[in-house]
Protein backbone atom coordinates (compact mmCIF):
# COMPACT_ATOMS: atom_id res chain seq x y z
CA UNK A 1 0.00 0.00 0.00
CA UNK A 2 1.44 3.40 -0.96
CA UNK A 3 1.72 6.12 1.66
CA UNK A 4 -0.85 8.30 -0.07
CA UNK A 5 -3.96 7.34 -1.96
CA UNK A 6 -2.91 9.42 -4.96
CA UNK A 7 0.46 9.10 -6.66
CA UNK A 8 1.07 11.36 -9.68
CA UNK A 9 3.23 8.63 -11.24
CA UNK A 10 0.12 6.43 -11.45
CA UNK A 11 -1.37 8.68 -14.12
CA UNK A 12 1.24 7.37 -16.57
CA UNK A 13 0.04 3.85 -15.80
CA UNK A 14 -3.60 4.57 -16.68
CA UNK A 15 -3.26 2.46 -19.82
CA UNK A 16 -2.34 -0.53 -17.66
CA UNK A 17 -5.97 -1.02 -16.57
CA UNK A 18 -6.28 -3.30 -19.62
CA UNK A 19 -4.04 -5.77 -17.76
CA UNK A 20 -6.96 -7.00 -15.64
CA UNK A 21 -9.71 -6.59 -18.25
CA UNK A 22 -8.40 -6.14 -21.75
CA UNK A 23 -11.59 -5.99 -23.78
CA UNK A 24 -13.39 -3.40 -21.72
CA UNK A 25 -10.23 -1.37 -21.18
CA UNK A 26 -9.53 -1.29 -24.89
CA UNK A 27 -13.11 -0.30 -25.69
CA UNK A 28 -12.90 2.48 -23.13
CA UNK A 29 -9.66 3.93 -24.56
CA UNK A 30 -10.97 3.74 -28.12
CA UNK A 31 -14.10 5.56 -27.01
CA UNK A 32 -12.05 8.07 -25.01
CA UNK A 33 -9.91 8.82 -28.06
CA UNK A 34 -12.98 9.38 -30.23
CA UNK A 35 -14.58 11.70 -27.69
CA UNK A 36 -11.61 14.06 -27.70
CA UNK A 37 -11.18 14.27 -31.47
CA UNK A 38 -12.16 17.40 -33.36
CA UNK A 39 -15.91 17.26 -33.96
CA UNK A 40 -18.83 19.62 -33.66
CA UNK A 41 -16.81 20.91 -30.72
CA UNK A 42 -13.13 21.64 -31.24
CA UNK A 43 -10.51 19.59 -29.39
CA UNK A 44 -9.64 22.83 -27.60
CA UNK A 45 -13.22 23.33 -26.38
CA UNK A 46 -13.41 19.70 -25.27
CA UNK A 47 -10.19 20.09 -23.32
CA UNK A 48 -11.60 23.10 -21.44
CA UNK A 49 -14.78 21.14 -20.69
CA UNK A 50 -12.65 18.25 -19.43
CA UNK A 51 -10.72 20.66 -17.22
CA UNK A 52 -13.96 21.95 -15.72
CA UNK A 53 -15.33 18.44 -15.20
CA UNK A 54 -12.03 17.37 -13.61
CA UNK A 55 -12.60 20.00 -10.95
CA UNK A 56 -16.27 19.14 -10.52
CA UNK A 57 -15.41 15.51 -9.86
CA UNK A 58 -12.22 16.53 -8.02
CA UNK A 59 -10.00 14.03 -9.80
CA UNK A 60 -6.32 14.98 -9.24
CA UNK A 61 -5.15 12.86 -12.16
CA UNK A 62 -7.62 14.57 -14.49
CA UNK A 63 -6.67 18.03 -13.19
CA UNK A 64 -2.98 17.29 -13.92
CA UNK A 65 -3.75 15.89 -17.34
CA UNK A 66 -6.11 18.63 -18.49
CA UNK A 67 -4.09 21.51 -17.05
CA UNK A 68 -1.27 20.34 -19.33
CA UNK A 69 -3.59 19.58 -22.20
CA UNK A 70 -5.29 22.99 -22.18
CA UNK A 71 -1.87 24.68 -21.99
CA UNK A 72 -0.69 22.62 -24.95
CA UNK A 73 -3.75 23.74 -26.86
CA UNK A 74 -2.78 27.36 -26.26
CA UNK A 75 -5.50 28.19 -23.71
CA UNK A 76 -4.84 31.19 -21.50
CA UNK A 77 -4.83 31.10 -17.72
CA UNK A 78 -7.98 33.25 -17.74
CA UNK A 79 -9.80 30.72 -19.94
CA UNK A 80 -8.69 27.87 -17.72
CA UNK A 81 -9.81 29.58 -14.53
CA UNK A 82 -13.15 30.54 -16.10
CA UNK A 83 -13.66 26.85 -16.87
CA UNK A 84 -12.98 26.03 -13.22
CA UNK A 85 -15.51 28.69 -12.21
CA UNK A 86 -18.07 27.02 -14.45
CA UNK A 87 -17.49 23.84 -12.42
CA UNK A 88 -17.72 25.85 -9.21
CA UNK A 89 -20.93 27.57 -10.31
CA UNK A 90 -22.59 24.27 -11.23
CA UNK A 91 -21.49 22.60 -8.02
CA UNK A 92 -22.57 25.62 -5.95
CA UNK A 93 -25.80 25.86 -7.87
CA UNK A 94 -26.45 22.18 -7.36
CA UNK A 95 -26.33 22.75 -3.60
CA UNK A 96 -28.24 25.97 -3.64
CA UNK A 97 -31.04 24.77 -5.88
CA UNK A 98 -31.86 22.27 -3.13
CA UNK A 99 -32.59 25.31 -1.05
CA UNK A 100 -35.93 25.32 -2.81
CA UNK A 101 -36.60 21.83 -1.42
CA UNK A 102 -35.66 23.12 2.01
CA UNK A 103 -37.95 26.11 1.58
CA UNK A 104 -40.81 23.89 0.41
CA UNK A 105 -40.40 21.70 3.48
CA UNK A 106 -40.16 24.69 5.79
CA UNK A 107 -43.32 26.15 4.27
CA UNK A 108 -45.10 22.80 4.62
CA UNK A 109 -44.24 22.64 8.26
CA UNK A 110 -44.86 26.25 9.11
CA UNK A 111 -48.11 27.81 10.31
Amino acid sequence: MSKTYYNSEDLKKFGNITEFQEEMGKKFFDYYGSVFEEGALTAREKSLIALAVSHAIQCPYCIDAYSSDTMEKGCTEEEMMEAVHVAGAIRGGASLVHGVQMMNKVKDLSM
Binding site: E38, T42, A43, R44, S68, D69, M71, E72, K73, G74
Partner: peptide, 9 residues
Protein backbone atom coordinates in the same frame (compact mmCIF):
# COMPACT_ATOMS: atom_id res chain seq x y z
CA UNK B 1 4.82 21.47 -22.00
CA UNK B 2 4.59 20.43 -25.63
CA UNK B 3 2.92 22.38 -28.42
CA UNK B 4 -0.58 21.27 -29.36
CA UNK B 5 -1.90 20.87 -32.88
CA UNK B 6 -0.29 23.42 -35.20
CA UNK B 7 -3.47 23.74 -37.24
CA UNK B 8 -5.63 24.45 -34.19
CA UNK B 9 -3.15 26.94 -32.77
Amino acid sequence: FLPGSQETL
